[in-house]
Amino acid sequence: MKRTILPPSRPPRVGSRPRWTGCLTRIDLGDERGDVPGWVLVTLMTAGLVVALWTVAGSTLTEVFLNAIAKVTSAI
């Protein structure tokens, strides 16, 4: 019994739809166009929290940091 090995099918070029990422997986990007990715929102919210925290407690955080560095450097 002779087996026939077929070459893998080639995915369509980038930019065409639907995009194939493997033999059995299909990703349809039609619904995702124009949406802000989640990582962008997480990054912006994190930056906002840092700015808010620094505004409220910036001088205290700086003093705590400088005291800790002074203790470490004087112990050496």
Results as ranks from 00 to 15, higher is better:
M1N: 11
M1L: 14
K2T: 14
R3G: 02
T4W: 07
I5M: 06
P7M: 02
P7T: 04
P11W: 00
P11S: 04
P11I: 00
P12L: 12
P12F: 04
V14Q: 03
V14K: 06
G15N: 02
G15M: 01
S16Q: 11
P18S: 03
P18T: 00
P18V: 03
W20M: 05
T21P: 01
G22I: 00
C23M: 14
L24S: 15
L24N: 15
L24F: 15
L24K: 14
I27C: 02
I27W: 04
D28K: 02
D28G: 02
L29D: 05
L29K: 03
L29I: 03
L29E: 05
G30Q: 08
D31I: 04
D31C: 08
D31S: 10
D31Y: 05
D31E: 14
E32G: 07
E32K: 11
E32H: 11
D35P: 01
V36G: 00
G38I: 05
W39K: 03
W39Y: 11
V42G: 06
T43G: 09
M45S: 14
T46V: 10
A47F: 07
A47E: 06
A47V: 06
G48S: 03
G48V: 00
L49G: 09
L49D: 08
L49P: 00
L49W: 09
V50R: 07
V50E: 01
L53C: 13
W54M: 12
T55C: 08
V56K: 12
A57W: 10
G58T: 03
S59P: 07
T62G: 07
V64C: 07
F65I: 10
F65S: 12
L66C: 06
L66D: 08
L66N: 10
A68H: 11
A68G: 12
I69A: 15
A70P: 00
T73Y: 10
T73S: 12
S74F: 04
A75N: 09
A75S: 10
A75H: 08
